[in-house]
Amino acid sequence: MAFSTSPSFFTSPNFTVNHYQSSSPASSVRYGKARSPPISANFATATAERTTSRSPRIATTSSLYDVLGIQIGADTVEIKAAYRRLARVLHPDVGNQDSSPDEFIRVHSAYATLSDPGKRADYDRSLFVRQRMGARTSSPAGYSGRRWETDQCW
């Protein structure tokens, strides 16, 4: 099986950074402190729904548009706005103490692909192929796995 189609064990549940996050704050070696989220309540609840309703499995099969919560035809302004809106909730600096950086990393890589016209065109083509073939095969030929995860523009 190709490496790219199997979730890495560095991000899968059997290898998490939970022991850094779930323990009680204890030592003076900490490098960061939690921030209370400077965001309105409806943002927070929206995110709570997002994070709880999405298992890692669903996340890998949903499209980048789903990750940003936008329509497939969204324009650049909408993509940027969606990214900023999610960043203000999901970025670790904003401080939901239990949030893992994975969510933000996923949002950023979706944004990185969709905000680059060339990468977005490639992705849209692969998405089209995947949607047509996805029902029949588990490893679609035209879709190159989760390449976008490791392929940021910035």
């Binding site: 022991h19 850094y20 996050q21 323990s23 009680s24 704050p25 204890a26 030592s27 070696v29 900490r30 490098y31 960061g32 402190k33 939690a34 670790p92 600096d93 401080g95 103490q97 949030s99 950086p101």
Partner: peptide, 8 residues
Amino acid sequence: MSEEVGYT
């Protein structure tokens, strides 16, 4: 993010 040590 908060980087907390995994021990007390």
